[in-house]
Amino acid sequence: MEWLIASVISVMTGCGVYLTLRARTFPVVLGLTLLAYAVNVFLFSMGRLQIGIPAVIDPAAAAYTDPLPQALVLTAIVIAFGMTAFLIVLALKARSELGNDHVDGLHRSDDELKATKHNSTKTETERSQS
């Protein structure tokens, strides 16, 4: 079972790292989600892998598994969930404001450029800063 869990974590981390390094925001969001899954399983396995043993106090139990990693994972899941939701909203905002979904993008589509070309000096100062 150790082998299985370890390979699951490594595959998820590998995919997560690959996707996070992509140039568009959607793969980045997916990559971060995968990384979060990987770290959750990793945290879980840090209490050592045991099968069929209770984590809460039980008079009939012969042994216990470590309950702390389970509490940690629960916290980590909630935080990762919230952060991912925030990131998705931010990615959508970036898509609509920057005109494309590139992580580094500041290009606008051509028609947008034409529309703003003659009236906005503000945009030019913005561009000169970047």
Binding site: A36, V39, M46, L72, L98
Partner: peptide, 29 residues
């Protein structure tokens, strides 16, 4: 626009940081 782009970078790098933090904490535990 510039703020949104800078914000996106900031959020993504800090999310990666949080993941690494959990890996480190898990290993130490």
């Amino acid at each position: 626009r510039l703020r949104t782009r800078a914000g996106l970078h900031y959020v993504v790098i800090n999310l990666v940081g949080s993941t690494l933090f959990l890996f480190a904490v898990g290993t130490l535990y």
